[in-house]
Amino acid sequence: MSAALQYFLAGLGIGGIYALVAIGFHIMWSSAKAVNFAHGDTLMLGAVLTIVFLDHGIAMPLAILLSIGVAIVFGVLLERVAIRPFADHAASIGWMLTTIAIGIMLESYATIEFGAFARPLPSPGVDKPIIIFGAGVFIQELLIPFVAVLIVVLLGLFQRRTQLGRAMRAVAFNRVAAGIVGINVLHVAMFSFALASALGGLAGILVAPVIQASATMGLLLGIKGFAVAIIGGITSAPGVVIAGLLYGIIEKFVDGYISTAAREAVGFSLVIVVLMLFPQGLFGRRELVKV
């Protein structure tokens, strides 16, 4: 019993990480029908920069703000350089490859400057585990899924209550129509990438105390986060968070009751099966062909 609870709690923590990454993919996709394939590296940027700023004697709150600021600049530049010139092409190869290229460069540069070793990011959330019915969990691990859910709620409010948020929804629904009614689609896309990158940087800072910051921390998180976003239905923010949490929990139960070895094969087979049954993802909106 306590073992099952332990797997559940650990899975919730890991699933929260996937959910945070997936929200970023959702925001980018909604505005541009393209994503930063190297979004995992945005997390790396947030986490690694925070440590670098701390190394330079900058206080933690300021270091966090500065890192998120850099992440926002990165997101805006990336949208301008790697997404926008390739967004017109129906085939999605262009932006996939440009963003992968930027990810490779970022990761390589970070390896050289920051070093290949993982480093800790101190946080009171990982000082001591709390014990629930014999299962241990760090506060930080519970904080991550909580923040993921909170972001979805806030995002929903933002998209309903503000002018900019409503514009985001309009663009997500139909880019062309949104442009016709006078919404500046390019501004919305830029804002969405800035927002996604800010949340990505924040996610990196949140998860680093648990998984450690390193130049290569982003790759696997990015791939899994994207897979999770797709099976959740990338057009639905609550959908990707639910899928992320479920995926993390399933992984831990596979670890615990089947074997650590089977985890990726089982997980990614599940991805394929879900997509076969729900081509638009579990909670995604079906797009109608019109001729």
């Binding site: 650990a10 990480i17 241990g136 648990v210 921390m217 696997l220 831990k252 670890d255």
Partner: peptide, 8 residues
Amino acid sequence: RDTDMTPQ
């Protein structure tokens, strides 16, 4: 890159 080893 495993982040949790409690099951083992």
